[in-house]
């Protein structure tokens, strides 16, 4: 393809090709401080392409392709090329990765132990992880948490955090502006702005941690904590995993071990500050 770059996030080496220079330049800026291994072959390929040659210039629209594609996925305007790249990378991991059990969950870690937060988009799992990652925590990722079937350990996937809507202002006030990507206004997912994780999150991205707390956050309503049984946590996480079925018995083994050894809670919170307070309280209890 005309333009391309290579990005390593956690255990996954991507190669991203594009018909346009702009999305690649934007990616290169977000991932400039991630480790580069020129000699390492790519595990996954992402392609950003124009469906017809003239659509490279005329009302340019970015189709997302790669090793895995979603049929009938709608293209994005070139101004949202960075979002297209992010979606393409997520897609390859979600559908192609087999080394770990993939949980659609954010995670943060402290002292070698992790809090894993699983929830639908809008639950606030990304925002909570991003905010905790600006405090005393190591950000492991806002999108995927990887569980090694053999050891049960959690591995990080610290891609650039995808901040949405109100979360943008909440984080923008706290971090160095150089760590923020361009504002992508009015995308199909709302306003989006990427946050480059702190250097410590990137430096330690290959270090495994032991899961210590499972949370199922829900943004909105009164602050509440409800302990969750193993069965419910198990079923929720099968739904939050994109490769649970493909892993077969190894996936079942990893997930049963996770829910049996790690306490789980559903939490509701009216605002980020109380959400973070809940996480810290539960952590203090779990870490005891």
């Amino acid at each position: 393809m005309r333009h391309g770059t290579r990005i390593a996030v956690g255990p996954v080496q991507f190669r991203v090709g594009s018909d346009w220079a702009k999305p690649i330049a934007a990616l290169d800026r977000l991932y400039a401080d991630y480790p580069q291994h020129e000699d390492r072959p790519a595990d996954a390929t992402v392609r950003l392409f124009a469906a017809r040659p003239w659509r490279r210039w005329l009302r340019p629209s970015v189709h997302i392709g790669g090793d895995y594609v979603v049929p009938d996925a709608l293209p994005l305007p070139l101004s949202m090329g960075l979002l297209a790249a992010e979606m393409g990378m997520n897609l390859q991991v979600a559908l192609g990765w087999r080394r770990h059990l993939l949980l659609h969950a954010s995670a943060v870690a402290k002292n070698g132990r992790a809090v894993i937060m699983s929830g639908a988009s809008g639950s606030g799992k990304s925002t909570l992880a991003a905010l905790l990652g600006e405090g005393g925590w190591r950000l492991m990722g806002d999108e995927f948490t990887l569980i090694a079937p053999a050891s049960g350990e959690a591995f990080a996937f610290p891609r650039a955090v995808s901040l949405k809507n109100q979360a943008i202002a909440e984080l923008a006030g706290r971090v160095d502006p150089a760590r923020l990507g361009p504002l992508l206004a009015g995308t199909p997912k709302g306003d989006i702005r990427h946050l480059i994780p702190r250097a410590d999150a990137i430096e330690t991205m290959h270090e495994p941690v032991r899961p210590a707390l499972l949370l199922f956050p829900r943004f909105g309503g009164e602050a509440a904590v409800v302990p969750m049984g193993e069965g419910e946590a198990f079923v929720r996480l099968t739904e939050a995993s994109t490769n649970y079925i493909a892993l077969g018995e190894a996936g079942f083994g990893a997930l049963t071990r996770l829910v049996r050894t790690v306490p789980a809670f559903a939490i509701a919170y009216p605002d980020s500050a109380s959400g973070i307070a809940l996480v810290e309280d539960l952590w203090a209890e779990a870490a005891r």
Binding site: R15, E38, D39, R40, P41, A42, D43, T45, D67
Partner: peptide, 9 residues
Amino acid sequence: PREWDGVIG
């Protein structure tokens, strides 16, 4: 390495 990229793809 770049040959592997293509072969794997």
